[in-house]
Amino acid sequence: MLEISNLTHTYGSGPSAHNALDGIDLTVAEGELVCIVGPSGCGKSTLLRSIAGLLRPTGGQVVLNGSPVEQTPDNLAVVFQDYSRSLFPWMSVADNVSLPLRRKAMDKKQRKDAALEALEQVGLESAGAKYPWQLSGGMQQRVSIARALAYRPALLLMDEPFGSVDAQTREELEDLTLRVRGHHNMTIVLITHDIDESVYVGDRVVVLSKAPAGIVGDLRVDLPGPRDQITTREHPDFVHLRAEVGRLVRGMRSQPASASQ
């Protein structure tokens, strides 16, 4: 459903030009949850902004559901890292969640119901009348997720979605993501710098190199059963994969006897 071919992006020109993306090729299948992991400053956000149509890459193309992305596509939602600057503080939580539904053919009542349903799915059914700044950081990020869910996008992009919350909330939100994803069968691309998180959440982990970013690894995550914060993380395959991804991120050669394809 998402095909990225030979994507390059250079900021500026001349001697001060900064090459952020260096020929990225990536295909994401319908219903997949792909984690993109890489060292900080490697161009992960540039990649995400190109997929979202917020930035016009200098080379290559992104094709979503058969049509090339030129402006922001109408079937795509983004959960940003910084929830406090993504939710509008002058609107109630329910209005924030129903905000993107204004472009759909829905009347006020339908929008309200859809927002409430989405808030229910993230466990915030009673917070609709509050304002975002009355909620904790973790709850605000749940609101962002609810907003994306209410929109029912074909592709959900998450840009370091759990980077600004504490460790415990982070685990809760990871499980929430897995749960709603199972419920909606959405395609998700999640960008993170956290190696553990990428292996825990993803069906696939794509590893980017330092800038200019290129793909240095593409590993399938085959972990048994539903993911669980304790048992999954102590599973030998998890430990092994995490080490493998860690090596790739640090730029070491991967070992031949790995789970990579």
Partner: peptide, 10 residues
Amino acid sequence: QYVDTARVFG
């Protein structure tokens, strides 16, 4: 990021 949010959600 407010502007980006508005653009993403059309």
